[in-house]
Amino acid sequence: MSNVDAYLEEARASLKRLTPEEVHATEDALVVDIRPHHNRLAEGEIENSVVVERIVLEWRLDPTGDWRLPGFTAETPVVVVCNEGYSSSLAARDLQRIGLANATDLIGGFRAWRAAGLPVREGGSQAVV
């Protein structure tokens, strides 16, 4: 096993990862898309998701921070989405470490969501900064 595979396995040990269908059925979760703009532009976005690029994720979702997004608390379920469900696992673990105990990620990422035929917003909105 490579070092990065071990790191990913360790991160996922603290997550209750969700399938696209489970995320779609969850009404109270904050779905956070961390994919770069060019991916979102080419492939679309999950309807009702919030775009926060990875570089500012912790600052925008720190439940005690001055730069946090409005409308969520430390108890809000947060589902992080990347392209295929790898970097989102690492990001979700990092969100747990800053106080979001209910942070997790989408198994298979956006591409699994789209393959499941779930609602997609075409085009790519600008990232929240």
Rank of each mutant, 00 (worst) to 15 (best):
A29T: 02
E43Q: 10
K16E: 13
E22N: 05
T19R: 09
A42R: 15
A13P: 03
L15E: 04
R40T: 13
E27P: 06
E27V: 01
S14F: 02
V31W: 12
E22P: 04
E27F: 03
E21I: 00
H38V: 13
I34W: 08
S14A: 11
A11I: 08
S14L: 04
E43S: 09
I46S: 05
A13F: 07
S14I: 03
A11L: 06
A25S: 12
V32I: 15
A42I: 07
P36Y: 07
D33W: 09
T19S: 15
D33N: 11
E22H: 07
L41N: 10
T19C: 05
R17S: 02
L41G: 02
E43T: 13
H24Q: 14
R40G: 14
H24P: 01
T19H: 04
T26H: 09
V32K: 10
D33E: 11
R17L: 04
V23P: 01
L41Y: 12
A29W: 05
N39V: 12
A11M: 09
R17Q: 06
H38F: 14
L30Q: 02
E47I: 12
L15I: 06
P36V: 04
E22Q: 09
L15G: 07
E21C: 08
H24R: 12
E43I: 00
R40S: 14
E43D: 11
P20A: 15
R35G: 01
D28W: 05
D28N: 15
L15K: 02
V32W: 10
A42T: 14
H38P: 08
G44T: 11
E45T: 09
L18C: 04
L15Q: 02
E27D: 14
